[in-house]
Design a protein around this nucleic acid. Structure first.
Length: 647
RNA sequence: GCCGUUGUAGCUCAGGGGUAGAGCACUUCCUUGGUAAGGAAGAGGUCGAGAGUUCAAUUCUCUUCAACGGCUCCA
C-alpha cells in the first residue's frame, strides 16, 4: 500500500500501483472525468501513471494552471498527429504549452509543404476527428540507442539533436493514435478531453531561436475542454481588439502614422498633444519635488560623443546612419545620457552638489528593425521621461530607493496593480563583449541594487544576461488590461560612463572621485506609456488626462446662448470644454459624446437655463442629477487637481 | 532583418478582366426635439505605388512600400 496525502491534509491508503485516476475514482466518478494530470510531491505526473511512493497529491483539472498547460501540451501532440497524417515527412522540433498567449505551438520543418490559413481549418477538423477517437497518451521508457535508431530511421535530425542532450535512462516516448514523439510528458489521459480546437496563426521561428539558423514553421493554437470555453475565448479576443491602442488611438484622434513621414514615426494629433502635456505636467511636479533640475538638449550630436560613451560600438545598427557635415559625422541621439553627462561636466562639482539630478523629456531616435515596429509600443522616434542622477556610493541607497518610490507613486495614480521588478544582471562569460569588462565593479554594483530591493521589501526576480552594457538594471514589467505585457521602464545603475566621460567631483578629502550614475525613466516613453494607458483605460481617460473634459449638450437652439456662457465659465476655470451646437436631438448628442468617451456631459434645456443650473451626466454612468455650474466647476477642478482615477 | 498574411471613400467592409458599391462619418436643407442613432439631398476613390501580360487591369504576374501575426533584437 502507498499513503496519499491530500491538499486538505487528509491521508488515505491505496494499493501499490494505483494511479491518480484511481484515486480520483475513489472520490467520485465526476471528478475522475475531469482529472487531466496530478501534482505528485510537487511534480506534474500523468494521471494514468502509477504513483511510485507515498506522496502528497493534488489532482489537476482545467481549473489549475498546471492542468491547463498539460492539456495544451497534449494538444500540441494532437496537432502534430494531424499534421503528420496530412503532410507526411514533416519533421518536428518542440511543441510546448504557452502562457502568453495562452495555448501551445509546435515548431516544424515542413520540407516542401506549404500551409495556408485555409489549411489550418482543415487541420482543426482533422484534430477534432482524432480527438473523438479518445486515443490514450501512452508513456514508454526507451533506451537512448533505441530512440536514436527510431529517429535516424525517420531521418529526423531535429529530434536527434534533442536526444544529443539526454542521458540514457531519462528518455521517454509518448504515443497517441499514430503519432509517437520524444517527450518527457506529462500528458492528459486521452485525446477525447479536447473538445474545441482553434489554430490561431502560422509564423516563422528560427531554430533554437538563433537567427543564423534555419527558419522553422511555427503553428500556434489553443484548445478547450468544452465548446463554450472557445466561444468565451473568442469573445474576449474580440474585446481585446476593441481595446487595442492602435484602434483607440485612431478613433480618439490621439496619434496617426503617415507613409510619407515614415514607419515608426508617430504624429501626435491635438488630443494626443493634450495627454502628453498632462503627463509632462505630472512628471515636472514630482521631479521638482524630488530635487531634479530640468534640462533641454539637442537631438543630434557628433560621433565622438557616442564613441566616448561607448554606445556606438554596441548600438550602431539601431541608430539612424550619420549625416556628414564639414567633414564630421553627426548622429541623431538614441539616448540622452551622454548629453546629460556633458551638462554635469560643464561646471566643476563638489560633493556638496551631489546628488545632482538632471531630467528631460528627451526626444530620441532609434532605428528599430522594420519587423519590430508595433503601433506606439515600438517606434523610431520616442520621448523619454529620462533623468540621470549623479551620486556617491553612500548616497546610492537613498537615491535608488527614492526612484523606486516614484514608480510606486505613479502606479497608484494610474491604477497599475500588477507589476514585476526584474533585476537584470550581466553574464560573466560575456564580459568584454556584451558587457563592459569590469568584473569587480559588476559584482559590486549588482549587490548595491539587490540590497536596495531587499531592504525596501520590493518584490523582484533576478534574470541573468539582461543587463545594459554599462551596468545592471531593473526592468519594470506591467500588464495592460488586455493582457499585453510591457516593459514600462528600465531603471539602471551605471558605473562605466562616469569613468569614460572622466566625470568627477571633489570629495571631502579634496580628491577627485567618479560619481555613480542612475538612469531612470518611470513613465518610460510617451509613446509606450500612452499606448499602455489607452489599453489600460479602454480609451476612457480619467478627467485630468481626458483631451476633452466636458461637453455641453443644449437640448435645442433656445439654450444655445446659455451654453456659450457655461462654456466661458468652464474655460475660465481651465477646464477643457466644448458645446455641441449641431441641430441634432439630445439622444443623438449624448450617444456621440458617450462614444467619444468624454467624461462629463452637461445637458441643458430651458429648465436648467431658468434655474441657472446644469444637468450632469458621467460617461458610462448616466444621469447624475442637477447642480449649479459653480458647484460643478469646483468638483471637476478638484478631480483634475487630485488626478482622481475613474469611478 | 527573416517567415507568413493583408492593402478598395475619413472609418468598418462588400465586389470583381469591360469606366467602382453599402453603412457610419462629412456638407446643405428640413426638423427645435429632455438623457445612447429624426428626415431628405449632396459631395467624396489614380481600388497603396511602379512595371508587365492583355484590345482592355482595381481584378492576373512581378517588383516595391506600408500595416498586421510571429521569430530575432531592444541603450
Amino acid at each position: 500500500m502507498i499513503k496519499i496525502t491530500f491538499p486538505d491534509g487528509a491521508v488515505r491508503e491505496y494499493p501499490y500501483g494505483s494511479t491518480a485516476l484511481d484515486v480520483a475514482k475513489s472520490i467520485s466518478e465526476g471528478l475522475a472525468r475531469k482529472v487531466l494530470a496530478a501534482n505528485i510531491n510537487g511534480q506534474v505526473w500523468d494521471a494514468t501513471r502509477p504513483i511510485p511512493t507515498d506522496a502528497t497529491l493534488k489532482l489537476l483539472t482545467w481549473d489549475d494552471t498546471e492542468g491547463k498547460s498539460t492539456f495544451w501540451h497534449s494538444s500540441a501532440h494532437l496537432m502534430a498527429e494531424a499534421i503528420e497524417s496530412m503532410y507526411p515527412g514533416v519533421k518536428f522540433w518542440v511543441g510546448p504549452a504557452t502562457e502568453n498567449p495562452p495555448g501551445f505551438y509546435y515548431d516544424m520543418d515542413l520540407g516542401g509543404h506549404q500551409i495556408s490559413d485555409e489549411d489550418l481549418r482543415k487541420l482543426e477538423t482533422k484534430m477534432a476527428e482524432l480527438a473523438k477517437q479518445q486515443s490514450a497518451y501512452q508513456r514508454k521508457d526507451i533506451s537512448k540507442a533505441e530512440a536514436v535508431g527510431y529517429f535516424t530511421q525517420k531521418g529526423d535530425e531535429y529530434k536527434l539533436d534533442l536526444l544529443g542532450n539526454l542521458q540514457d535512462g531519462e528518455i521517454t516516448f509518448y504515443t497517441q493514435g499514430q503519432f509517437t514523439d520524444l517527450c518527457r510528458g506529462p500528458h492528459i489521459p486521452h485525446t477525447g478531453f479536447i473538445k474545441a480546437v482553434k489554430l490561431t496563426n502560422i509564423a516563422g521561428a528560427y531554430w533554437k531561436g538563433d537567427e543564423k539558423n534555419k527558419q522553422l514553421t511555427r503553428i500556434y493554437g489553443i484548445t478547450f475542454p468544452a465548446k463554450k470555453d472557445l466561444e468565451e475565448y473568442e469573445a474576449l479576443q474580440e474585446e481585446a481588439r476593441k481595446r487595442d491602442h492602435r484602434k483607440l488611438g485612431k478613433e480618439l484622434g490621439i496619434f496617426t502614422f503617415d507613409d510619407q513621414v515614415g514607419p515608426g514615426l508617430p504624429l501626435w494629433m491635438p488630443n494626443g498633444g493634450i495627454v502628453i502635456e498632462e503627463l509632462e505636467k505630472l512628471a515636472k511636479e514630482s521631479e521638482d519635488k524630488a530635487g531634479y533640475k530640468r534640462v533641454v538638449t539637442p537631438h543630434i550630436a557628433k560621433e565622438s560623443l557616442y564613441l566616448t560613451s561607448g554606445h556606438l560600438p554596441y548600438y550602431q545598427d539601431s541608430m539612424y546612419p550619420p549625416m556628414e557635415l564639414e567633414g564630421v559625422k553627426y548622429y541623431l541621439k538614441a539616448m540622452n545620457c551622454p548629453h546629460h553627462h556633458k551638462i554635469f561636466d560643464a561646471e566643476p562639482k563638489s560633493y556638496k552638489d551631489l546628488p545632482y539630478r538632471l531630467a528631460e523629456y528627451g526626444t530620441c531616435y532609434r532605428y528599430e528593425q522594420s519587423g519590430e515596429l508595433f503601433g506606439l509600443m515600438r517606434v523610431r522616434c520616442l520621448h523619454m521621461n529620462d533623468a540621470h542622477i549623479y551620486c556617491t556610493k553612500e548616497q546610492f541607497y537613498e537615491e535608488f530607493k527614492a526612484v523606486n518610490e516614484m514608480y510606486l507613486k505613479y502606479f497608484k495614480i494610474f491604477g497599475v496593480e500588477k507589476y514585476v521588478m526584474r533585476l537584470s544582471l550581466h553574464d560573466p562569460a560575456k564580459l568584454g563583449k556584451k558587457y563592459v569588462d569590469e568584473p569587480e565593479l559588476w559584482k559590486e554594483t549588482e549587490a548595491l541594487v539587490r540590497d536596495v530591493l531587499i531592504r525596501t521589501n520590493t518584490p523582484f526576480k533576478e534574470v541573468a544576461d539582461e543587463a545594459a552594457f554599462y551596468g545592471p538594471k531593473i526592468d519594470v514589467q506591467i500588464w495592460s488590461t488586455i493582457g499585453r505585457e510591457f516593459t514600462l521602464a528600465t531603471n539602471q545603475v551605471d558605473f562605466a560612463q562616469g569613468r569614460r566621460f572622466k566625470l568627477t567631483f571633489t570629495n571631502k578629502d579634496n580628491q577627485a572621485e567618479t560619481p555613480l550614475i542612475i538612469h531612470r525613466a518611470p513613465l518610460g516613453t510617451h509613446e509606450r506609456f500612452i499606448g499602455f494607458l489607452l489599453e489600460h483605460y479602454a480609451g476612457k481617460f480619467p478627467v485630468w488626462l481626458a483631451p476633452l473634459q466636458v461637453k455641453i449638450l443644449p437640448i435645442s437652439d433656445k439654450s444655445m446662448e446659455y451654453a456659450q456662457t457655461l462654456l466661458d465659465s468652464l474655460k475660465n476655470a481651465d477646464i477643457r470644454a466644448e458645446v455641441d451646437d449641431r441641430s441634432e436631438k439630445i439622444g443623438k448628442k449624448i450617444r456621440d459624446t458617450e462614444l467619444a468617451k468624454v467624461p462629463y456631459m452637461l445637458v441643458i434645456g430651458e429648465k436648467e437655463m431658468q434655474e441657472g443650473k446644469v444637468a450632469v451626466r458621467r460617461q458610462g454612468k448616466g444621469d447624475l442629477g442637477v447642480k449649479s455650474i459653480d458647484e460643478f466647476i469646483l468638483d471637476v477642478r478638484k478631480e483634475i487637481k487630485e488626478r482622481t482615477p475613474n469611478p
